[in-house]
Design a protein around this nucleic acid. Structure first.
Lengths: 354, 354
DNA sequence: ATGAAAGCGCTAACAC
DNA sequence: GTGTTAGCGCTTTCAT
């Protein structure tokens, strides 16, 4: 069905060598031959067989994407920008979704290795549990770039500095005069989440403000007191950020004393908190300032438009692909490159105008 | 680096034939040999080279996904379920995002053809403009299943019946006693959108209710009166559903007479309308009932939890893959299979409880 | 400037 | 029950 070079050679009366030279733009071809061949190629709509090329070159020109790349709009945007940047460089993307469990990861890794991907991009949340998988990949010397640092894994990484972001969010609130500041977070052990809390605590400490633990709502599955490991992480993931925000905030509102501001894990959590505040008759931002994270579109259209942090998702794709292709080409020193990008504060109404 | 059968054969003291027979589970191998080989395979962590297999078998065991597969949470969910179902069948997914413009489509198609995908899944919105691309694919006899019917294209298709869904949404409102019903829609020429309006009009006609055109807000780019073609579609896409809902509703609220209920294109549009209502001091659902479509998580957490339609996104993946693999295997009659799934009404509060 | 031929890792048909 | 071999479509080296 699809045209092969073999068939082409017959039709065009040239040798495979010449055909190949035309195809690769080598100058060692007579201009008239080149032109004729090119014209025919166009007419016959020849598409080279990337599978055969891959086998021969031992480079498939594909990149694998592993992890929960579609689990939220921000990740989905990253995936899109990854694809666009990869295509510029002649790479295709093999999508190997994984919910982050080790069986799912293992399956995906096997799949990608079998497809001879030239490199892998790992969506992850910085869970220590995921380290063994990454290490296996590194052992095989497959170029790997992470979208969040995984504790105990030394690899290339392009990520948004959530620690710094939450520091700045908290500072924003402090700058607005708030002293009684709460935090809506969850009890995941992922760095992705833990760093948010650390950023918050850092800013509070730096401003010599005391952190009241009762104002930290660390959402936890209803029927349990705490836990760890994959099973635990999975259960946390099952509670949506909205719910975490809603119940977390409701719990805090029930205390004798309330904070005047809350730093929220995500926009969704902030929107959940906003609803809880509405229901409790607490006005935002007058009685309670709320700051979110992600700048998803919903943030702008929340009942009170959310002040939040915007992540440069579009940029991430470019950075990752640029790093990964250089790594594949062996143009990078052995030492892993870690590239932190900064989120940007977007001021809207949920902390008061200004 | 990666182990090949050639190397394996040396280490294991068996022939390629026997190795292959073990690998494919053929019974024509002495049990003891099989066991020994299997054990070694495991120990050495052999992963077959899918590229070489693909070249040899002339089946890459990959499926291409084309179109805006990450552009909204519903599509992203479909992509995930597609991946999971495909993996069950031994297929990998090549992700070829396209915004739906013909250049982007053409690039993606070329990419997928070059990768020898065994089949293609097309995310699309039922735009007549997209027909030529699909037809090119069909001409090459690449199995193709669409996720929405494209006018003028005869191909396998698994989709959610939005026409019926909007009929039922409207009927729900009518059943609640509403007679003055508006519609928030946009001016895309895609079937994906047009069918919603048709469903609405059908239900109104059937109930002998007059459709007041002034209550139909058909969002249009600000600086223009109408248009068509790719450029037009692209501009509409740039206006978010929230904005379309917000401005569309605001426009309707400004009329001398207002509807008592509105059917909204999507949940986001409904949330936009809800905000417009809040700002205009119109209470939902008492003065205005609002019904959305998609049941995205935001719908449940809107200020007034949205009554909406839930799409079986998880199911779609299975259906599509099942259809596509059968088509690839030649187990289907030539006549395209079109499979419409039904969305389900989810009653919450935005139309009044009940 | 052009052509011929070997081989990437795998499968399958055929020989033993 | 096991071994051998030709070739899938392409690239690349070497010869002409």
């Amino acid at each position: 069905m699809a045209l092969t070079q073999h068939q082409l050679v017959e039709q065009l009366n040239v040798s495979r060598g010449t055909l190949h030279r035309v195809l690769t733009g080598s100058p060692l071809v007579k201009a008239s031959t080149r032109e004729r061949v090119l014209r025919e190629l166009e007419r016959l709509n020849y598409v080279p067989n990337a599978i055969a090329q891959g086998l021969k070159n031992r480079k498939s020109k594909t990149l694998g994407v592993i992890g929960p790349a579609t689990s939220n709009p921000s990740n989905a945007d990253k995936l899109t920008s990854l694809y666009l940047a990869a295509r510029e460089e002649g790479y295709s993307i093999i999508f190997a979704y994984s919910d982050g469990s080790s069986e799912a990861d293992a399956k995906s890794i096997r799949e990608l290795r079998s497809r001879m991907v030239d490199g892998i991009i790992a969506f992850g949340r910085g869970l220590p549990e995921a380290a063994p998988m990454y290490r296996e990949l590194l052992k095989d010397e497959i170029p790997l770039v992470g979208l969040y640092p995984t504790p105990g894994v030394e690899t290339d990484c392009v990520y948004v500095d959530t620690h710094g972001a939450f520091r700045r969010m908290t500072e924003h609130l402090i700058g607005l005069g708030h002293k009684k500041i709460g935090l809506l977070i969850n009890s995941s052990h992922s760095l992705f989440i833990r760093n948010r809390e650390l950023g918050f605590r850092d800013a509070m400490a730096k401003a010599k403000l005391t952190v009241r633990e009762e104002w930290i709502a660390s959402a936890t599955p209803y029927d349990s007191q705490g836990g760890e490991g994959e099973e635990w992480e999975k259960r946390i993931l099952q509670i949506s950020d909205y719910q975490q925000g809603f119940w977390g905030a409701s719990l805090i509102f029930a205390k004798r004393q309330r904070p005047t501001a809350m730093v929220c894990m995500t926009d969704d959590a902030a929107i959940g908190a906003l609803r809880a505040a509405d229901l409790a008759g607490i006005s935002v931002p007058q009685e309670l300032a709320l700051i979110g994270y992600n700048d998803k579109e919903d943030a702008r259209f929340a009942r009170v438009p959310l002040t939040t942090m915007h992540q440069p998702d579009e940029l991430i794709g470019r950075e990752v692909i640029s790093l990964l292709t250089k790594r594949i080409a062996g143009q990078l020193p052995a030492k892993p490159v870690v590239h932190a990008l900064q989120a940007k504060l977007v001021i809207r109404e949920s902390c008061g105008k200004k």
